[in-house]
Amino acid sequence: MRLINQQLSPPVATALKFAPFVLLILVYLLGSAARLAENPNDKLLPALSSIAAAVDLMAFTPDRRTGDYLLWSDTWSSLKRLSAGLGISTVLALMIGIGVGTLPFLRALLVPFVNFISMVPPLALLPILFISLGLGETSKIALIVIGVAPIMIRDLAQTVLALPREQIVKAETLSASSWLIAVRIVLPQVMPRLLSSLRLQLGPAFLFLIAAEAISADSGLGYRIFLVRRYLSMDVIFPYVAWITFLAASADFAIDRLRRRLFPWSELEGGR
């Protein structure tokens, strides 16, 4: 039988799903044990016990100086920046994407410009943002928006343009105005794609967030990682990285659930 036709029984499929994760942890534990056997003071691959101690210190013990629980206050600061950046990008993508996709005037005016802007490397703009907008929250949120919005706008405009012309004409024969076509035909049909696009941009958004926090911040997940890097505190960095990954994965999962819940028809269409 060809490999492409292989049928996996449910237990095998489940086992395969978990195997890479188990393997990763196993490799870590073995590596950590080997290095610690050689040098008990090794900081590169700390033992699980030291990681647990670090997690306890960061998440469940108030900071001596500020009295905050650092992991949670860092998470709160970062998520505020992230959601502001992604929220603004989403609204921009909706307005400009649908505008550009439906109206020839806006298309002529904005498409070349947005395509051009989306080629600017956002990290190269970071110094400019810090200089012009200051070191506060604005510049960090602006970096996320500049990094994420142009791609989302392009993606959404593309989705609008890919709607069959027949649908738009049909809506015209049902007496829809340009505005009504935008709100009743185009908007609901591109919403699922907007959410998917948002999911894809979670990774880049975290990248820009951490880059901005690494350079200038007084709290945040990226800030903490780059702070403790000076002391080679891998026991803090590893859990932080795992936590960021977990946050991103949960957001990814939640947005997909939201899409299915809000737009059940999009699942049907995909299934055809």
Partner: peptide
């Protein structure tokens, strides 16, 4: 039309 005459989201 032969297809695309109805709206998939309604």
């Amino acid at each position: 039309y032969q297809k695309y005459s109805v709206f998939p989201h309604l």
